[in-house]
């Protein structure tokens, strides 16, 4: 590692050189890959397994499957989709949506998920975070925080896919989730979701500066340079991308080549 650049906070100097991850985020409803705007107005994009396969072949570092209607045991349940995907895709797969218990986690891991992400269930019962991480390891437990601006500089943590307000401050909740054993935090800006306006840098940097676990920033990536901003200015470890990739406005390769040209290390 080289010396810290003088314009950066010394506390996080090494992260500039750290290799970051590009993670396609596939929001799923029933059998479809969908994309919304601010988690609403869902538009069908296509077959999630085909997109997953394509992203794997194009060099995605991981994949996130997020079931927006949380129908873990419903008619079109996630288990089959996860198992079929995991058979053909040899990169880490994080699965979220509808997980309520340690047994749900175990069932998903058995289908080939590598990590799970939880939001609503741990807002209702935060102890579930430590139950999951002590049973399966913290590396397996991603806590998603769906943050929405309430007033300038304040974000609240929402749940039930953005429909309910937990009355928890998103930044405080991020810290609590980490203390309880989350191995990674997936921070979703509801305001930026599907907006193509860029990552919420203030939200992400506030959280990344006070936590010690890896941060995945989600919501708002509209161009490859938005990824650079998230890494350079908010010091996140990974960026989740939906819209930009799903609608073919950029490929993973193009995103990665752009960030490399801007001095950020990624796997090509």
């Amino acid at each position: 590692m080289t010396d810290a650049s003088p314009d950066r906070s010394p506390a996080w100097s090494a992260l500039k050189q750290k290799r970051i991850r590009i993670i396609p985020r596939l929001d799923i409803k029933g059998q479809n890959l969908i994309k919304g705007v601010q988690l609403e107005g869902l538009r069908v994009v296509g077959d999630p397994e085909k997109f997953a396969q394509k992203y794997y072949e194009e060099g995605a570092d991981e994949l996130i499957y997020s079931d927006v209607v949380a129908s873990l045991y419903g008619r079109n349940n996630l288990f089959d989709m996860v198992a079929k995907t995991a058979k053909r895709i040899f990169i880490p797969l994080t699965v979220g949506g509808g997980i309520r218990s340690v047994d749900d986690v175990e069932a998903l891991l058995k289908c080939g998920a590598d990590k799970i992400s939880v939001n609503s269930a741990v807002i209702k019962r935060p102890e579930l975070i430590s139950e999951i991480s002590s049973r399966f390891g913290s590396q397996c437990c991603v806590v998603e925080i769906q943050a929405k601006v309430f007033e300038k500089g304040q974000w609240m943590a929402l749940y039930e896919n953005g429909r309910e307000n937990s009355d928890r401050d998103a930044i405080d909740w991020a810290c609590e989730a980490m203390e309880r054993g989350a191995g990674e935090l997936l921070i979703t800006s509801i305001d930026r979701d599907g907006s193509r306006e860029g990552i919420d840098l203030e939200l992400m940097s506030r959280i990344s500066s006070i936590t010690r676990v890896p941060i995945i920033a989600s919501g708002g990536v509209g161009s490859p340079s938005d990824v650079c901003d998230a890494v350079d200015r908010a010091v996140v470890d990974a960026v989740a991308i939906g819209d930009l990739l799903h609608f073919g406005r950029a490929s993973i390769r193009e995103v990665k080549e752009h960030v490399i040209q801007n001095g950020i290390d990624v796997r090509l």
């Binding site: 100097s13 090494a14 991850r21 590396q139 990674e184 890896p214 470890d237």
Partner: peptide, 18 residues
């Protein structure tokens, strides 16, 4: 180690491609 060789904080777990 949770500090890099310059004494700055690094994130644990180590997650990613190396």
């Amino acid at each position: 180690p949770n500090l890099d060789i310059n004494g700055s904080q690094i994130r644990i777990p180590h997650i990613g491609w190396a």
